[in-house]
Design a protein around this nucleic acid. Structure first.
Lengths: 213, 213
DNA sequence: CCGCCAGGTTAACGTCCGCTAACCGGCGTG
DNA sequence: CACGCCGGTTAGCGGACGTTAACCTGGCGG
């Protein structure tokens, strides 16, 4: 991969050209699919045209790679940090799980296009890049599984993993949501998703002991 | 649309050529995306090659259209039928909701590729076909919303709709699941998803009254 | 037995697309 | 002031892709 990405941390007021391109590319890829968007179109979206993109990226594939590796990394690292903070504060595992849920929702609401891409266009990557992204995703899942099983040690690993995948599906549904026709504001949506995710987890646990009568 | 589809009901032992093509096309489209699959590839998957497909379909677009219209119609009609049956049997609304959940899970587990396609490749349709599919999807969502609000009349419509979308996300996560590395059998997965879906709905309702302390 | 047609084949066409080549202007630095 | 290079431009190439054309064949009805 190319060496010095501009260290995608807190929002810079003046986005660099690279960042503009990545932003527009993610928007277009999410809307029409990787193969459905041409380089001319991406260029036009940032006011330059066509082959000028090659001054910033090795090719169209490199843009998708950077987007997917970027979001997978940020998800994993953000999750790790939240869990570490909760533990450092001496909070119980349940608090760490809530922190994971809240963090993921923030991500899904803020970077909707990237959330869409990262489970939709993974197969378009070159084999080695795909392996890398899958590893990052797996580490993120395992982080959730570990925390979930610390809250409910009686939950078998495969069952915990399936529950986590299901909750990801629930949380990532924000991509269908959040259009003007839905809930009033993002806050309400976030709270609703938070509660539903925890409710789903609780149901997965309750059902595993005898069913609740 | 072309007139006489072979009335896609119960599994015929000898699938017609058209059905073979649709099956393989859905598999390939789900795996690599509509634009990522060539007609030669689809042909090869059923043992014929390339342009022979045009003896059965007007074009590549027509295959996708038929797949998406087909699954959207079957989802909506299947849901309507289950709700009608529950009502005819004099069962309470909660039973109808459970029937919807169970039916959707059956669908998601059995037609995984189609479930994937129908929220992933919608934008590739021609405008009028897209409108039709969206209308079918909307009717399916509204069916769920109506049943859900019959179970919990105090739930505001927008909140109910958001909950339904979130549960769809949860249920459709089977597409990530059900690989060999997950739960032992489909039955266990189905039960888990069923319980989590109902748990998520309950949480959406509980949170709406004062939070449970 | 003839002919037709359903359902294949291969060849070819036109377009689109990713990418490279060649060129160029402006601006910061020695 | 000259120069280099960063970041643009347009032209064009090569290959892939959807689709059409032209042709072929085997089985079935009259």
């Amino acid at each position: 991969m190319s060496a010095h990405a501009p260290s995608s941390s807190a929002a810079s007021p003046r986005p660099t050209r690279r960042e503009q391109i990545l932003r527009e590319a993610s928007r277009l890829f999410a809307a029409r699919g990787f193969h459905g968007v041409g380089v001319d179109e991406i260029g036009a979206a940032v006011g330059i045209s066509g082959p000028a993109l090659y001054r910033h990226f090795a090719g169209k594939d490199a843009m998708l790679t950077e987007l997917l590796v970027g979001i997978s990394t940020r998800l994993r690292d953000g999750g790790r940090q939240r869990v570490a903070e909760a533990e450092a504060a001496g909070e119980p595992p349940a608090a760490a799980l809530e922190a994971l849920v809240t963090g993921h929702i923030d991500f899904a609401l803020h970077d909707r296009d990237l959330i869409t891409l990262h489970d939709r266009e993974l197969e378009r990557l070159r084999a080695d890049d795909r392996r890398q992204v899958r590893q990052l995703q797996r580490q993120y899942v395992e982080l959730w599984v570990d925390v979930l099983r610390r809250v409910h040690p009686e939950l078998p690993p495969e069952r915990a993993r399936a529950s986590v995948h299901a909750v990801f599906g629930l949380l990532n549904s924000t991509r269908h949501l959040s259009r003007p026709d839905t809930l009033p504001d993002r806050g309400a949506t976030a709270v609703l998703l938070h509660d539903m995710a925890l409710g789903a987890f609780r149901a997965a646990v309750d059902a595993h002991h005898g069913r609740p009568g």
